[in-house]
Design a protein around this nucleic acid. Structure first.
Lengths: 211, 211, 211, 211
DNA sequence: AATGAATGAGAGTTCATTCAT
DNA sequence: TATGAATGAACTCTCATTCAT
């Protein structure tokens, strides 16, 4: 899963009120952490503001000092998630010796990331109905980095030419579904035999008759 | 997308009240059609019973003659969707002359199906938090048919051996993400170049070094 | 519990539609029987018309051919209950050799009656809020018979003179609470020791210093 | 009505949310007062949350800050009633010079209590179908205190021996029915002649042939 | 910066009753 | 006489958000 990540987000960090004191900063972070847990456990719609503020240990009114609305904090969380996932993958990929290594490393990082962030990751699905634009943005952003990497590899002759966008979405789809099947459903790492089969399927597909 | 569909559902059709008159049958169908539209447009949580009954043109109380709850009709819809999708694919695949044709036919049918049922298809995502078991059931059921077809093809030597379950989830992931990218987001058919690239990627992956 | 019962009810039997056919008569009786069971098991407010018609095996609409409303059938039931209870007591009492025997017989019949009609008997309490007038009527009617019997016994010198109405309500209160304590709560007959104690308390109270 | 009251309730006061400010405390009390009135006037089932919050002058949602549910506040009310009634009686009885005085004082306090709390008192009847256990608890608790007092008087030779539990329920029954007949129905105090007759009936019954 | 009481619209659901057949 | 589909007002309860302190 090779991807060159873009370093800075060009959508607002949408922070509503920049905390001016360290006490405020701490409160904001407690809220964010609580929200990640609660949204992850219950999903966007079933999570309530009471759940979040209770878990954060602050009064309900306090929440609205730092975030505009329930949707607001949810979006902040999704952007963080997107940012961190892409950064981790890009770091893993940048150290790869070969293309195959890069792809394998990308998949592996992806699986370990969603294992760590299982809950929050799941609720990205809720996004489709909470904020469709952000939902598209999330996957497009992911795909962008992928496309750049694939184009470079194709130009360099490491992979045969195939429409890069199609390939990018196909590989993301594979990663998501294997992650769902094992990491989310079984709460275990993707097994060796599945990693092997998936990598073989993907590499043969990318190399094709060229070999 | 080759798949041998299982003929009978082993989960209840869970019809709550068998309409005893044709008028009742008609009302039930109106409700089902309205729910499909409303759930599709707004998602499970944002859709309200008022929305559904208003669109169906019946009183709110009437709904509860035919369905136990909001969740009940949602699940009925998902089961219908699952059933119909698998039936259509299995029909398309059964007439294929070769394995390649079968795979291509399966993908094509899948894309046209979600185009037709765009709204309802989208809400399967909501399932993860509405009824996790049904959510897993939906994909497992889908994968099962796939796995059967893949195993047969591998045994017959048409494809090289790769863990069939992994391949099944990978192919479903590809189909879902290409469908999302074009059918759901752009509201257009998956373009020729994408179909070509995807089929080439998949077929080379499945044939591999065997060729 | 001596009581001369009045033979005919002077409040309407409040039958809404006199069944004209034997089929209709049968349906009406099925409804009455079902209502007794359902009201008894759930209480007036928690019992639903669906419960009643389902148990009677008729359509919901059919109910309204025979009764004006939910309240209507409830009141019909209460009147039946009142009538039957008073008739049974009056029969038991009329054969008594002595006053003491009459009182004992009255209590005994009362306890066995509420054992047989435990459920319906309980819901007379609901009456207080369903139809206050009928509620008062129920107890006044009961008291009337009692008063008549007590006055006769006092005049005959079998009991000392005490305000008969006060005594009537006191004795009804005793019977109700002993019945509640054992018959309703423990679902067993009132134990021998309680019967003995109660009769002794009552008889000494009624005989007083006269003895 | 002699009774040694138990000092502490062993069922939770079941306060759901301790109001943290005096404003909150005031709101909770308004709600309690409104509920007492409304439940008393209409009974548990006919009383609606709208009635209660409207009478309390707060929004509907406010109710649920202080009480878990409609049933919750109802039970809180019943427990308060039980507690207060038993406390008042126990105070009145503790100052009595003789047993006869104690009994008379108990009856009198009981009648004046239900006159003051006519509304709430009535709804104890609803309890049988709202929460049967609490219903039994209410009367058992009442009887317990009574039994203790009676046993002491019997041991001291003030009353002859009669099964104390039977006598307790009998006396409670008398009090309830006389209270119902005059206080609840006529909205007047129990008349002198009824008090005299009842006390004479009870005292002779309790003294019996011993005298 | 923080509190927590208060809001009120809106949610899903129930149910006695009506009415066309 | 009987049906059962349909009604719609009313129900209890939830919850994101506001605001006085």
């Amino acid at each position: 899963m090779s991807t060159e990540d873009l370093n800075n987000q060009n959508m607002d960090r949408n922070r509503y009120s920049y905390a001016k004191t360290s006490r405020g900063e701490a409160t904001r972070n407690k809220l964010l952490a609580a929200a990640e847990e609660v949204f992850g456990a219950k999903g966007y719609y079933s999570a309530s503001m009471v759940d979040i503020t209770l878990k954060a240990g602050v009064a309900q009114g306090t929440f609205y000092i730092y975030f505009r609305s329930k949707k607001d904090i949810f979006e902040a969380l999704v952007k963080d998630l997107s940012h961190n996932l892409r950064r981790e993958i890009s770091q893993a990929v940048s150290g790869a010796a070969s293309r195959r290594e890069a792809e394998e490393g990308g998949f592996a990082i992806f699986f370990s990331f969603i294992k760590e962030h299982r809950n929050l990751y799941r609720i990205v699905q809720d996004l489709a109905f909470v904020d469709e634009d952000l939902y598209k943005w999330y996957y497009r952003r992911f795909a962008e980095g992928y496309i750049t990497g694939l184009e470079a590899a194709m130009k360099a002759g490491e992979f045969r030419h195939l429409d890069p966008e199609t390939v990018a979405y196909a590989l993301i789809g594979i990663a998501e579904f294997l992650g769902m099947r094992w990491v989310l459903w079984e709460k275990e790492p993707v097994p060796e035999k599945a990693m092997t089969a998936a990598m073989s399927l993907v590499m043969e597909g990318l190399l094709g008759e060229r070999r």
